[in-house]
Nucleic acid binder design. Structure first.
Length: 110
DNA sequence: TACGTGACAAGAG
DNA sequence: TCTCTTGCCACGT
């Protein structure tokens, strides 16, 4: 697929597969793509994904379930509200049931 | 063409 | 156990 030519494209492809009500992390996605030390790039890809409306970037958080990227969304609580509308419980920018809804592409997609 | 930046993660002190 | 430092890759200027 020509969309898989770049790291960014592959990141987007994985993020699109995250089901509603579930969340994943930058590290897991990076690891799934074969570069576990490139979590930063995944975050950067999310930043660039704002101009692409197909990417559920709000379902991607850091390894502890903290909404570090919320500030990049329009409005202070948009990211939080999007997740809550999908059934995710968030308290102080932290996903409380994070361990229960974590979506690991290396496991789910195998 | 080259350098700096960035929504992270893991190891070492 | 907590905090600081380093590594990583692609994009924008």
């Amino acid at each position: 697929m020509k969309d898989d030519t770049t790291f960014f494209k592959r990141v987007y492809k994985v993020v699109r597969l995250i089901p509603s009500g579930r969340v994943s992390t930058y590290g897991l996605i990076a690891a799934y793509l074969g570069t576990p030390k490139s979590a930063r790039i995944v975050g950067y890809a999310m930043n660039a994904s704002h101009k692409i409306h197909d990417i559920p970037a709000h379902r991607v958080v850091n390894r502890i379930g903290l909404l570090t990227g919320k500030h990049h969304f329009s409005g202070t609580n948009l990211m939080k509200e999007l997740l809550e509308s999908e059934g995710v419980v968030i308290k102080k920018n932290l996903i409380t049931n994070f361990q229960n809804i974590i979506w690991d592409p290396s496991i789910e997609l195998h």
